[in-house]
Structures are given as C-alpha cells and as structure tokens.
Computed example of a mutant assay.
Amino acid sequence: MSTELPEYYFRVRDNGAAVFKVDTENRQRRIEMDQIAVANIRNGEIKAQGARELSPEDVKVIKDWMEARIALLAARDIDDIHRAVDYMNLTTHWAQTKATDDQLEDVTDALLMAMHDLRTVLIRKKADRLMKGREDVSDDD
C-alpha cells in the first residue's frame, strides 16, 4: 500500500461525488478531509462548498475525475449488457436441459414479455441507424 495519500478524495454519490481536500500537514499528523465541492456528473456542475473559492487546479482535478468517472460508468454499463447476453444464453440452456414444467410456468410469461420488449426496441433502434446511414450516404452524393 502506498504511504502517500492523494491530495483529493472523491466520495462517490449517485450522480457524482462530494470532493474533499486531504490534509496531513498538521500538528497531530492526522488525516483531515475538508469538503471543498460537490460534483454532478449528470449536468457537469461543480459547486464549491460554503464560501470557498475553488482554485483552477481544484477545478481541473474535479473535471478530470468527472471525465474518468463517466468513462468508467459507461464501461460498466456495456459490461452489464454483455453479461446479460451471457445470462440469456445460460437461461436458454437451463430452459432446454434442466427446467421443470412448474419452473417454466413460473417464468415463461415474464421472460417472453421482456424479450418481446427488448426485441421491439432493438429492431426500432437498428432501423433508425440504417435509415440514418442511408441519409448520410445520400447527403454525400
């Protein structure tokens, strides 16, 4: 474990983080965290805490964290979707090889509705992309 503490600490919240400045340069050599701002990744807003004014370095560090956090959450989202595909395949295998009639009766309607809803959205989105692709090609002519 590193003995050097970061200068900033981000306490993650649903839509961003509370931002703290970390201080160990005090007489008691205790770790003190002073909240300096709240960062909202949904709207990009950074609000200084209380009457504090954020330095350009503070703002840069917070914006860099926000960009990294947005990228991390996007990567997690796509990873979750890839896992959902795996779960669908495992569910198919379960239904075909292990499921009892009672188990299938319990889940069939819910699965069929969810799959129908997903299929409808995916087809509509794919059609939109194909139409947009055609428009882009015809605009280039």
Rank of each mutant, 00 (worst) to 15 (best):
I78W: 03
M88D: 05
Y8D: 04
E67P: 01
A51H: 13
K63S: 08
A51D: 15
A68L: 04
G133E: 06
V107F: 02
P56G: 08
R134K: 07
G16E: 05
D34N: 13
D101Q: 12
A75N: 13
E135A: 14
D141R: 10
V19L: 01
D58R: 10
R11T: 03
V38D: 09
W65T: 06
A18I: 01
R124W: 03
F10L: 04
R69M: 08
R119H: 13
T3W: 06
R83D: 14
V61F: 00
G133I: 01
W65A: 06
A48C: 02
L111S: 07
P6L: 02
A17G: 08
D80H: 11
W65I: 06
T108V: 13
I123N: 09
V121R: 15
M131R: 13
G16L: 02
A68V: 02
S55I: 00
K63H: 09
N89V: 05
D64K: 07
E25W: 03
L130E: 13
K126M: 07
Q35T: 00
N89F: 01
Y9L: 10
H82N: 14
A39N: 09
R27I: 11
V59P: 06
A110W: 00
Q96W: 01
A95L: 10
E45R: 15
L111T: 05
R124F: 02
D139Y: 09
T100Q: 04
F10D: 08
W94Q: 08
L90K: 13
V22E: 05
Q28V: 04
T3Q: 15
D102S: 11
T97C: 00
V107S: 07
S2T: 13
D109P: 03
E57K: 12
R42A: 11
V107T: 11
D117Y: 06
A75I: 00
V12H: 11
L90E: 13
R42S: 10
L90V: 04
E7I: 06
Q35K: 07
L122A: 12
R11Y: 02
I81K: 15
I41E: 15
T100F: 01
K125G: 04
